[in-house]
């Protein structure tokens, strides 16, 4: 091991590299902190449309009806 092989520009690269990695991840952390507030402001200006996926479709309604019927049948037969 010969430390003389490490030249000033190598040290400079190591320090700069570490600094850039920290800068990138710190900026990401700051962005994540502010993201909910930014989204709240955006949501205030452009209210999101009602979620289409949350309304049950025909297949889900049918499954719910079948489930209710089964449940009703079982609870009645055990009485």
């Amino acid at each position: 091991m010969n430390l003389d092989r490490i030249e000033p520009e190598h040290l400079q690269l190591a320090v700069t590299g570490m600094t850039v990695v920290f800068a990138a991840l710190t900026l990401i952390a700051v962005f994540i902190y502010s993201l909910p507030r930014v989204l709240a402001v955006v949501d205030g200006i452009f209210p999101s449309a009602p979620d289409q996926l949350s309304s049950p479709n025909e297949e889900q309604e049918r499954a719910a009806a079948v489930g209710f019927a089964l449940h009703h049948h079982r609870t009645q037969s055990t009485r």
């Binding site: 430390l3 190598h10 190591a14």
Partner: peptide, 10 residues
């Protein structure tokens, strides 16, 4: 980055 320096020294 420390290993980078270590590899240079080797």
């Amino acid at each position: 980055f420390l290993t980078f320096l270590g590899a240079l020294s080797l």
